[in-house]
Amino acid sequence: MRLEPVTPTNYEAALKLSVREDQKDLVASVEKSLAEAFVFGERAWPRLIYDGDRLVGFLMAFLDLPWKDVDDTDRRSGLWRLNIAEDEQGKGYGSFAVEAVAAELRARGTTAFYVTYVPRDGGPEPFYRRLGFVPTGEDADGETVAVRTL
């Protein structure tokens, strides 16, 4: 498994990635994510997840963003999006992606790794808890905020 930047030669394949139908309310589309990556520039870190030559997912990290645009001194980094193709789920790609983001954040000197998720049955909370994320008690637009110490 490996991460690759989104490029002119692979972005169209990325746009075809889709999560399961019952997950579409849990994560924004790759299209929206790439638009946000354009707007946020160097603060967004979009990557494609490959297994060999097969594209299996998309992730986007956020880097040193002001928390809720309220306090410029409270800057955070973490996982913004994680889209694993519907027929590729349950094969370890999500865990690989989270650990790859953790490694990138560590390399940048980050000590706290944030994620948000929709708190509902069938949502990703158990996945993130297994990977060491703990809810902070904060809310971000109806999503639970969780953090993992790096």
Rank of each mutant, 00 (worst) to 15 (best):
M1R: 10
R2F: 12
L3R: 12
E4G: 12
E4L: 13
P5Q: 13
V6G: 10
T7P: 15
P8H: 11
P8T: 10
T9S: 15
A14T: 10
A14K: 10
A14C: 15
K16R: 15
V19W: 00
R20T: 01
R20F: 00
E21C: 04
D22N: 11
Q23T: 01
K24F: 00
K24V: 03
K24G: 03
D25G: 10
D25H: 09
L26H: 08
A28S: 14
S29W: 03
S29L: 08
V30S: 05
V30D: 05
S33D: 13
L34H: 09
L34N: 05
A35M: 13
A35P: 04
E36F: 10
E36N: 14
A37R: 05
A37Y: 03
F40D: 12
G41F: 03
E42G: 13
R43M: 07
R43Y: 07
A44C: 06
L48F: 04
Y50D: 04
D51M: 07
R54L: 11
L55Q: 07
F58Y: 15
A61C: 06
F62R: 07
F62Y: 13
F62P: 03
F62M: 11
L63T: 00
L63M: 07
D64I: 02
D64M: 08
L65Q: 12
P66S: 12
W67S: 03
W67C: 02
K68C: 02
D69Q: 15
D69I: 06
D69E: 15
D69K: 14
D71L: 14
D72M: 13
D72F: 09
D74W: 07
D74K: 09
R75F: 02
R75V: 00
S77W: 00
L79R: 01
L79K: 02
L79S: 00
W80K: 03
R81A: 06
R81N: 08
L82Y: 00
L82P: 01
I84H: 02
I84L: 04
A85P: 06
D87F: 04
Q89K: 13
G90Q: 08
G90E: 07
K91W: 01
G92K: 06
A97D: 02
V98M: 08
E99D: 12
E99A: 07
E99C: 03
A103Q: 06
E104T: 04
E104L: 05
L105M: 06
L105H: 02
R106C: 12
A107F: 02
R108Y: 05
R108M: 08
T110H: 11
T111Q: 11
A112Y: 01
T116H: 07
T116E: 09
V118H: 06
P119D: 15
G123M: 07
P124I: 01
R130A: 14
R130I: 04
L131T: 06
L131A: 08
G132Y: 08
F133D: 03
V134W: 00
P135N: 06
P135E: 08
P135S: 07
T136K: 05
G137V: 09
D139P: 05
D139C: 10
D141R: 13
G142P: 11
E143Q: 15
E143I: 08
T144C: 14
T144L: 10
V145I: 15
R148F: 10
T149R: 15
L150T: 11
L150N: 12
L150H: 11
